[in-house]
Computed example of a mutant assay.
Amino acid sequence: MSTTAPHARRARGKGAGLGLLAWLLGIAFFLPIAWMALTSFHSETDAATNPPSFAASLTLDGYREFFGAGGGASPWPALINSTVASVASTLLVLLLAFPAAYALSVNRVRKWTDVLFFFLSTKMLPVVAGLLPIYLFAKNAGMLDNIWLLVILYTSMNLPIAVWMMQSFLAEIPVAVIEAARVDGARLPTVLARVVAPISLPGIAATALICFIFSWNELLFARVLTGVVAETAPVFLTGFITSQGLFLAKVCAASLVISLPVLAAGFAAQDKLVQGLSLGAVK
């Protein structure tokens, strides 16, 4: 008893220290978002003060101007374009990555490690290095300022990381379950839809969320390849930085509104995300 008590006290002290550290890190990550949210409710004059005034009066002028109340452009077309590009590309990525990951994890093809390395090597190319060829291709194909061009690009950009993630998730599925389904006469589409997919649902949700976030936040290709018709939300946000200066309150309001879909998706799928990212972590 006398030897276990000091160990228990040290364990409780270590747990309390780690808990305090986790709280401090959480607050540090949350502070910029809280600062942005508070600034979005200030007037431009109060937002530009240095140091900022926390007791300044609150107003919704930044949100009104963002939604076009002051005669500016409406953000709805850009938000719709971002939604279409992100959701459509994420669905295409899942449809392509799921059978590919199955072939690389459960029913492994020959030299499957080389295939995975090839997928990983495609992410080593700097995005800007492929910008000019893609721009020339889109121009010659008449697809500039086309939202479906972004869908194709986002699908190809997110497919390698999706295959890598889902391959690790599907590798944790017991092979005996799949073999039992085959013995019962289930064909490959049935095995994928009714056996593998339900078991790997947390991994699929985590992969879908990561691909959605990457597509929603992408700026470089959307900035270069779109104009007015296919403008996305991040491109629309850059329009608030003009030669007249930076309208901080309006930019913060726009940033908060554009970030809400990603925050909402992450909050809704947080349990699946934690389960998916932790698959294989504990044997």
Rank of each mutant, 00 (worst) to 15 (best):
F66S: 04
S57Y: 06
P202M: 08
V127Q: 15
A55I: 08
V274A: 14
T232H: 04
S121W: 02
A176R: 08
I33M: 14
A47F: 01
I210L: 12
N146I: 10
S82H: 00
Q167S: 13
I213K: 07
Y135H: 12
T113I: 11
P234S: 13
I80T: 07
A48T: 09
V151T: 03
G17K: 02
A268D: 09
M166P: 01
V235Y: 02
H7K: 12
M143F: 14
A269T: 15
G245F: 08
S215T: 10
F29K: 09
S89L: 00
L132M: 13
T190D: 11
I258F: 15
I80H: 05
P126V: 11
S53V: 14
F117S: 10
T155L: 12
V128N: 12
G130A: 14
S82V: 02
A180C: 00
L60I: 09
S105G: 06
I178M: 02
L60T: 07
M166N: 00
L159H: 11
V128F: 14
M1D: 09
T83L: 13
Q167W: 11
L153E: 07
L159P: 07
E65G: 05
S53M: 06
L192R: 02
F247S: 07
L24S: 13
Y102R: 03
W35S: 03
V257L: 06
L273K: 02
F240D: 05
R194Y: 06
P75M: 06
T242E: 11
A265G: 15
N146T: 11
I80V: 13
A129R: 10
G71W: 06
L132V: 15
P32A: 04
R64H: 04
A254Y: 01
A56Y: 03
Y102T: 12
V183Q: 10
T83H: 03
V183F: 13
L125Y: 08
T4Q: 12
A181H: 09
E172T: 11
M124N: 13
D46M: 10
F214H: 05
A253G: 13
T232G: 08
A162D: 04
C252H: 04
G17D: 00
P160D: 15
A253L: 03
D145W: 12
A47D: 04
T83N: 01
A56S: 02
F267S: 12
A37K: 01
F30E: 10
L153C: 10
F30C: 15
W76C: 00
W23M: 14
A34M: 12
L225H: 10
S243K: 05
L220M: 05
T90H: 10
Y135N: 05
A171L: 14
V84W: 07
D114V: 14
P51Q: 11
P99F: 06
P198N: 11
L18N: 04
A171Q: 14
T83S: 14
A55K: 06
F41C: 01
G280N: 02
V191I: 15
A230Q: 03
A69P: 00
H7N: 08
A233T: 01
N217M: 03
L279C: 08
W76G: 00
R108C: 09
K250Q: 11
P126W: 15
I33V: 15
A193E: 00
M36C: 13
M36E: 00
L38P: 05
A205Y: 04
Q275W: 02
